Simulated scan of single mutants.
Amino acid sequence: MELCAGGSLVLIDCGSGARNFGRDLHAFPPRPFDLLFTHTHLDHICGLPFFTPAYDGRFEISAWAGHFASEGGLADIICRIMSPPIFPVAAKSLKAVTFRNFKAGADIPRDDDLVIRTVKLNHPGGACGYRFELKGKSICIITDHEHGDKKIDEGVRRFVEGADVMIYDAMYTDEEYKQFVGWGHSTWQKAVELALDANVKTPVLFHHDPRRDDDALDEIGEAARARHPGTLVASEGMVLSP
């Protein structure tokens, strides 16, 4: 995901779409930006070895993760996937990237007007949600997250309160979820319920089950909008503007 806020650029996670996005970035003058990881499961980091700005020293990329207990967590994980026999190019070749860790719940330090807050999520191995605030507008990214932990759920509820946009893990339906308790994902019904309870203007259903086709997602979108008229179903290439 790409976030443009004022003059700031922030990327959230680095899946397979990072390859094409990196190519697009080279069409503009190099600039510093942050890369925030919600967590480091393979589908969220597999694009970094193919993200060409990371190899270009003219860029300055601060890569952040907030779900590790150890200081070396993020760098260690990237080194593991970028080493033989998994990948032929070593992580030390990522000349533009500086790896940084924080503890979920802390704000990301910045020198501009964009505020980035974080919250702990419930996902195997840990995960972190983000809230971005600028000039009275706010967007929250809550993925990958499984509802059901009372303490974490209460923290997420406070975290997303009053947000203009909430991008939320909606991989399952409530009926499907019974088979996948503990897998680290939530349901579209919980997304809508949270949005209504926390006065979120636009909930965006995200992280769809890969087996679900467009027709099924259209049906979910209709059912969700019947409960919360502002609900959107995320799609590749979707652009949201304030």
Rank of each mutant, 00 (worst) to 15 (best):
G47L: 07
A127W: 02
H147Y: 15
G126V: 02
F68H: 08
G129T: 04
P88W: 06
K137R: 12
D56H: 09
K95E: 06
H41R: 15
R131G: 10
R117Q: 14
K120A: 10
A65R: 05
G66V: 00
E133P: 08
H44G: 15
F132W: 05
A106R: 14
V89S: 08
A104Q: 01
P49M: 08
I108Y: 12
V115N: 08
P88L: 04
L36N: 06
I78P: 15
E154A: 15
L74M: 02
R158E: 10
L35A: 13
H67S: 10
L121F: 03
A127V: 00
S62F: 08
S138E: 00
G136S: 06
I152V: 10
V89L: 09
H39A: 13
R158I: 02
A54K: 02
F99L: 02
M82W: 07
G125A: 04
S93R: 12
P124L: 03
C128Q: 01
F99N: 09
F59A: 11
K95P: 00
G57W: 11
V89P: 10
C128E: 00
I61N: 08
L42I: 14
A65H: 01
G129I: 03
L121A: 03
A163L: 08
Y55D: 07
G47R: 05
I116H: 08
G72M: 03
P124G: 13
H123M: 05
F59K: 04
V160E: 04
D164R: 06
V165I: 13
P84K: 06
I152H: 02
K92A: 11
I139H: 05
A127T: 03
C128G: 03
A90E: 10
V115S: 13
V119T: 01
A90M: 09
I108S: 14
G66D: 00
A90K: 15
D111A: 13
F51Y: 07
